[in-house]
Nucleic acid binder design. Structure first.
Lengths: 145, 145
DNA sequence: TATTGTTATACTCTATAACTATA
DNA sequence: TATAGTTATAGAGTATAACAATA
């Protein structure tokens, strides 16, 4: 039971994080997909293409997702000055607040589960995960930052 | 960039695992939710209540999920001998094969990303994750095994 | 009365294919 | 011709509320 292949451990912790994510999203009146979208935009506006790659969605799926959340005034589509076909999706002020609150709630809940780890251990696990994510970026081109 | 709160690292690795999970599911003609359902049943049949708690789903949502995958002969509902209201969901032989193949593909792909970690490091990270999951189980009662 | 599971309904999420407008 | 994004459509996933049957 304590002997667990790392790949299996990653799958299980991922499902657990999904559950936390779903609970927090619901608390904030969002679907998990909407929360993910908002959190991706915290760093700044993104085009639909990049956003779709980041969220692993077909463009048409993303159109609908953005439509629904734009109707709620959490994001808006800006014209791209360099390409009149394209648009850039940006958080509204309210969207930024919601994104920040949801992100804080997720990490807050996860922190509660990290009681059993000391600082050195956290740093070690965190570093290992950064390595794993770097491998994924190298393989797929999708950045996790 | 290398300094990342562990909670954030967990969220990011979780999204990465979801993408792998989605790709593998598609390769096997399944949705991610169906794959998760099948993999949960590998240990043996489960009642709808337990299954719903494990997958974090309302009972009515689970009814539909099981309906659709039962139509494809990957699971079936068995009568519960001790409670005539209840049923137990079990993998068919074909369902067990699909579950096994999908699980192997997911862990196989993840293993490719773990090249940069030596055995000791893997063991350390795996143990830390087991601790985290144990905390989640203590808080919610949902087992991850 | 409480619990197990289903049904009815209304959304959201997602992909495929066809389309428009711009590059 | 190729690319960015949308529309149309169909199916899957999800929750809430109301229900049936059994405990």
């Amino acid at each position: 039971m304590d002997v667990l292949r790392l790949a299996d451990a990653l799958v299980r912790v991922s499902h657990m994080v999904q559950h936390v994510f779903a609970d927090v999203s619901r608390d904030h009146g969002l679907t998990p997909q909407q929360t993910q979208l908002l959190c991706r935009l915290v760093r700044g506006p993104m085009g639909m293409g990049d956003l779709g790659r980041a969220l692993h969605l077909e463009r048409s799926s993303l159109t609908g997702l953005v439509d629904r959340i734009e109707r709620r005034d959490l994001v808006l589509r800006l014209a791209d000055p360099h390409d009149r076909r394209a648009c850039r999706v940006a958080l509204t002020e309210q969207g930024a607040q919601v994104a920040d609150a949801a992100h804080g709630a997720v990490t807050g809940r996860l922190d509660l589960l990290l009681d059993g780890l000391d600082d050195a251990e956290r740093e070690r696990v965190s570093s290992a995960i950064v390595l794993i994510l770097a491998g994924h970026t190298a393989a797929t081109g999708v950045r996790w930052t």
